[in-house]
């Protein structure tokens, strides 16, 4: 097994073992989405109209808040030092961690999306489209959040700082994610253009995120 896969495997194992954070993102997502109707009322027509937006906001918050500990645990037990001494470029190591995080946090969240859609009265057929936009867009959230996680660990601050740093950067993802979901459900705008841009954003952050995060980690060395 090569170092890249070994790191993905280790992080996924850590996430699903006791004390790991897998499913915590999905749980947070579930809770946030279930809370929304208490704020805006149980009107099913209204919920159906803004359902995709609620789901996207929930996914955004869940992806970012769960990233908080991505580097912090490795920093605290000295693993981060060794990760930087590997034969593989740090950019790849960082990307491996992000992929493992996406698989254990974002993927479960996408899987439970249809259930939440039912609660928000989004049509069954439309749910597939919303899930598809999440599938295409959440990698962008994870990889942009990665930069925030790296900055937060070098500053030895976590939690809200990460969200404050990263949320503005995720504006395009949110815009095109919700636009694509709405286009698929309500129309009349076509689904293709916003969805393609969403994919492009994910691909771009797939490259930009690890490079920036690795740079942040190297700069923050102390």
């Amino acid at each position: 097994m090569n170092p890249f896969l070994a790191l993905i495997g280790r992080d996924m194992r850590l996430a699903i073992r006791v004390g790991g954070g897998a499913l915590m993102g999905a749980l947070f997502y579930f809770t946030v989405v279930a809370m929304t109707p208490f704020a805006i009322g149980p009107d099913l027509n209204l919920l159906a109209r803004i359902g995709p937006a609620i789901l996207w906001l929930g996914a955004l918050l869940a992806s970012l808040l769960a990233l908080d500990r991505l580097f912090a645990t490795d920093h605290e037990d000295g693993s981060l030092d060794l990760l930087m001494m590997g034969t593989m470029p740090l950019e790849l190591a960082v990307a491996a961690k992000a992929i493992a995080h996406w698989l254990t946090t974002a993927l479960p969240l996408i899987v439970i999306t249809p259930v939440l859609g039912l609660m928000l009265n989004v049509e069954m057929s439309a749910m597939g489209w919303v899930a598809l936009t999440l599938l295409a867009g959440t990698p962008a959230l994870t990889f942009i959040g990665l930069i925030g996680a790296a900055l937060a660990v070098t500053l030895r601050r976590g939690g809200l700082l990460l969200a404050v740093l990263v949320l503005p950067l995720t504006v395009p993802v949110l815009i095109f994610g919700v636009a694509a979901a709405n286009a698929a459900i309500i129309g009349p705008a076509p689904f293709g253009p916003p969805f393609t841009i969403l994919c492009a954003l994910s691909l771009a952050s797939l490259v930009l995120g690890p490079v920036a995060a690795a740079a942040a980690l190297r700069q923050g060395l102390e």
């Binding site: 073992r17 006791v18 037990d77």
Partner: peptide, 13 residues
Amino acid sequence: HYLGHLDAVKPAL
């Protein structure tokens, strides 16, 4: 090889 003050051992593994 760097052997620092921290052991880089994951308790869950």
